[in-house]
Amino acid sequence: MSESKPENQLDKKESASKSHEAEVEANPLADDLVGELVRRFGESYVIKSGMVGGVPSIQVDAQQFVTVHAYLKQHPNWQLNYQSCYTGVDYGEELEVVSYVRSSSLLHMVCLKTRVSKESPRLPTLTTVHPGANWEEREMFDLLGIEFAGHPDLRRIMLWEGYAGHPLRKDFVEPQEESYGPST
């Protein structure tokens, strides 16, 4: 068993999303979503689109992540007003933030994504649109080291203040037994 290499992972993902492009044509929901955003914001907004595990997904720029959420939340055709899952994934050089939002009235679900670089993982907070994102963002800040600008209370949530590193990052090294425990 070889260790998972982030670079390979990235390549694989790229090719996977390309192979999904045929599926996008077949899925009206995904098509609509891209069309909607392109119509409203222009071609440059959508970086990548495709189907992710049967759910239409689009990737947008980190700065526009909140705008897209807010727009789709109030849009009558989408009404994506309920955030189901909100998390981050470490892909080597970049950290991906994934948000599954669904509509409580239209019953569809969409996956919105964005990527930030590992050197300066910073993006605007989503709490202004979905207040329930508060703790999930704190968890991401704690375990993945992503900073959310404008977050009302950005502190560690699971681990204690002063803990070195972010455990869910792939390059995290487990500290030695002696160094466990909150610093007094």
Partner: peptide
């Protein structure tokens, strides 16, 4: 390889698992 998210109605609400597989 791919990303999967499904959720069910648990006793306390929506339990979901999001798995990124390689």
């Amino acid at each position: 390889a791919g990303e999967y998210y499904t959720s069910i109605e648990g006793a306390r609400g929506e339990i979901g698992f999001y798995i990124v597989a390689d």
